[in-house]
Design a protein around this nucleic acid. Structure first.
Lengths: 111, 111
DNA sequence: GTTTTCTATCGTATATTTACGATGAACTAA
DNA sequence: TTAGTTCATCGTAAATATACGATAGAAAAC
């Protein structure tokens, strides 16, 4: 990307929402999160059983989710236990809620 | 991307959430949506006033949002009026709500 | 008709994402 | 010690995304 002119400044909210959404922006990562949200709550290893992809690819997607803060991983060699990061999860929920709930104006006559 | 082995099948929900999140996955698109959500509701033209980027780049981001269904554009030459697509907006809100509200288990002792 | 305004699209360059297999690091089990 | 398990990381290839300037098209203003 050429950045000759740009260097746009974004607000905290814009950055935060962008980051969260980007992490959610691949169906396999949605699936991973759903698995972590499931009754099992935490997962060690069996993730790849539910995702027909190379183990290295799954690992890469897990890293994206880790970097977003939405999940956390507890090393428990030779396994790693992945869980939702509750604190950040709630934050993300809040950000999205505020964003989406800001109502589309009823009195707007367009569409 | 090599797809020698893969061809993973995703559920409707996984695909839909992925698509929406991907569209939201850039701070400038978050800003555009916020502008469209603002009191003005619809915008014709002045969008670039709020976004210090090349006009062609803004147009490209608008296309991404259009393709996601989150916004719609009504051609009204030489201007175009962009608005939130209410129907799809509500759908997106619903999908995200269901996804995030599925509670992180309280009784889960990890994190 | 000519010019202006607004916006999409094209062409292009670079960065990032996505995917794979191979390898390595770390602990367990035999 | 040796072999097995689990997962991250490296190297690589191809697809997408991001950004720009230049150009084109379509109606409005003159």
């Amino acid at each position: 990307m050429q950045r000759t002119q740009s260097a746009v400044q974004y607000t905290e909210e814009e950055e935060a929402l962008g980051r969260i959404a980007k992490a959610l922006g691949h169906p396999v990562r949605v699936r991973i999160l759903k698995l972590l949200l499931s009754e099992s709550c935490c997962f060690t290893g069996q993730l790849t059983d539910f995702i027909p992809m190379a183990q290295s690819t799954v690992s890469q997607h897990l890293k994206v989710l880790l970097d977003s803060g939405l999940i956390q991983g507890e090393i428990n060699p030779p396994k790693v236990r992945y869980c939702i990061n509750r604190e950040n999860w709630v934050k993300a929920e809040g950000l999205l809620k505020v964003f989406f709930v800001s109502p589309v104006h009823d009195r707007c006559e367009c569409g």
